[in-house]
């Protein structure tokens, strides 16, 4: 039960929790937060592959992949949030389809 296993299982469960959040929440900002959790999970999985406690140290290729991934995710999040704000400004409701019964705007 070394740390590779703990962090990998945490990573896959984070991915699943993010997927659940993305599917479950009608509110746009909550969807984007869930997407970031999914991204965090995937990066944790990549780095848990790269980690070797003692011998040759940490594998630089997954680290480079995760660095690139972090910057890609923050730019995608910023773009999605700007879209969400614009939709809220125009339609007043921060959701993709305006179901009447929910008051949560």
């Amino acid at each position: 039960m070394n740390s590779l296993l703990i962090y990998s299982i945490t990573a896959t469960s984070l991915f699943t929790i993010g997927l659940m959040g993305l599917a479950a929440h009608p509110n746009l900002i909550r969807k984007i937060i869930s997407l970031n959790i999914m991204a965090g999970g995937v990066f944790l999985f990549l780095i848990s592959l790269a980690y070797h406690p003692d011998d040759p140290g940490v594998d630089p290729v997954p680290q480079a992949m995760v660095l690139t991934g972090i910057v890609v995710t923050i730019s995608a999040t910023a773009f999605a949030l700007c879209l969400a704000r614009r939709i809220t400004e125009i339609t007043g409701s921060s959701r993709l389809e305006d179901k009447p019964e929910d008051t949560d705007s």
Binding site: S3, Y7, F43, I47, A50, V58, Q63, V66, L67
Partner: peptide, 8 residues
């Protein structure tokens, strides 16, 4: 930090 990748 625990996984020895400080720049991330």
């Amino acid at each position: 930090t625990r996984l020895q990748s400080p720049d991330i």
